[in-house]
């Protein structure tokens, strides 16, 4: 008996709120930090973008443009990427416990980063190596999956392959860690594994934007088809969908998103697992709205957590640890309070 006009209006409001949320949070985050920058300075800096004259102190300028803005942007896009990728994977694998690293991308990326750190390839080397090995790990999983698939459930085999590949890569990381120089390399590896946005610069963002766009655009365009995948292969095929091809596209896109994120931030757990559930609680399981909502919520969530990580103490709190500490209890809450189907 609901008034359809009201519903339409309500959902429009929801959309506006969700679009505005990350933007508003970004503005708030811009004003918070360890270095004192006044609101007036921030206003000056932002208006200075449009009117050339700017009498801002050099340090304040650096803090706003070279420290906070890149970091805020990175938190938002990485939060978005991980959440979308998690949502897409959960649908494809028809499993609510799937996170973006189900196919071994994080473990692979961790291995790549470890190798780069051991060989002193520098921060760019670490990012590239993490990205490449992340993709390689997923390719391996997919390869194994196709190798052993007979008539069985391909998604199950892929998950199994992901566990295998993930285990192998994380064992290799442990092996390297056990022989790594304890004074020089080991701390660097450990810190990378904990995830941080502390050294993000604009050039890192420029670097990951292209692969992220390649990953996110097809997912957004195909998002209504993702609904069909959640019904199961047979039903989807009966509706004329080539499920194998669609699944491959989803895996490639979601992997690109995760690998690009991990390559510049290190491991950030739980975002890709929890946020899609939260988004489902807001908007329901339809992927048409689920993906955009996941993006908005995920970007906002990671921005808030990262702002806490960089401001609470003089030390940086490792971001990956904070997202897990906040994410896990939140997940339990969601599971116990949500009656909706996860599909």
């Amino acid at each position: 008996m609901k008034n359809t006009a009201f519903v339409a209006k309500y959902s429009k409001l929801k959309i506006i709120v969700l679009v505005l949320l990350p933007i508003l949070l970004a503005i708030v985050a811009l004003t918070i930090g360890r270095y004192p920058v006044s609101y007036a300075d921030i206003w000056k800096a932002l208006t200075g973008l449009f009117f050339a004259e700017s009498n801002l102190s050099a340090t304040a300028h650096t803090v706003i443009f070279d420290v906070r803005i890149p970091r805020i942007l990175a938190a938002i896009i990485i939060g978005m990427a991980l959440s979308v990728s998690g949502a897409a994977f959960q649908g494809t694998f028809r499993n609510p416990l799937v996170s973006p690293d189900i196919l071994g991308v994080s473990a692979g990326a961790g291995f790549g980063a470890t190798i780069a750190i051991i060989n002193s390839w520098g921060s760019l080397g670490v990012a590239i190596s993490a990205f490449v090995f992340g993709l390689l790990a997923v390719w391996l999983t997919y390869f194994i999956g196709n190798l052993i698939k007979r008539s069985g459930d391909i998604t199950l085999i892929l998950v199994l392959g992901g566990i295998l590949v993930g285990t192998i890569f994380s064992s290799l990381v442990s092996l390297i860690k056990s022989v790594a120089d304890p004074y020089e390399k080991l701390p660097a590896i450990t810190y990378w594994m904990m995830g941080s946005l502390g050294s993000i610069q604009m050039k890192d963002i420029y670097m990951v934007i292209p692969p992220m766009l390649v990953g996110i655009i097809p997912l957004l365009l195909l998002r209504w088809k993702l609904n069909l995948l959640t019904f199961g292969d047979e039903e989807a095929q009966s509706m004329g969908v080539n499920t194998d091809r669609l699944r491959l596209i989803v895996i490639i896109c979601a992997t690109l998103l995760t690998a690009s994120s991990v390559s510049i931030s290190g491991m950030i757990g739980w975002v890709g697992l929890v946020i899609p559930h939260f988004a489902r609680a807001i908007t329901g399981p339809n992927y048409r709205s689920l993906l955009p909502v996941s993006m908005a919520v995920g970007g906002s969530f990671l921005l808030v957590v990262d702002t806490i990580a960089r401001t609470l103490l003089a030390m940086e709190i490792p971001l990956g640890i904070l997202t897990s500490l906040i994410g896990a209890p939140f997940f339990i809450y969601l599971l116990s309070h949500s009656r909706r189907s996860w599909k």
């Binding site: 360890r34 502390g198 003089a314 030390m315």
Partner: peptide
């Protein structure tokens, strides 16, 4: 200077170094 006890090595943000 540690703001919580039992910290040895820590990560810091560039903003903190500016401070």
């Amino acid at each position: 200077v540690p703001d919580t006890p039992d910290i040895r090595r820590m990560q810091v943000s560039i903003e903190q170094i500016l401070v």
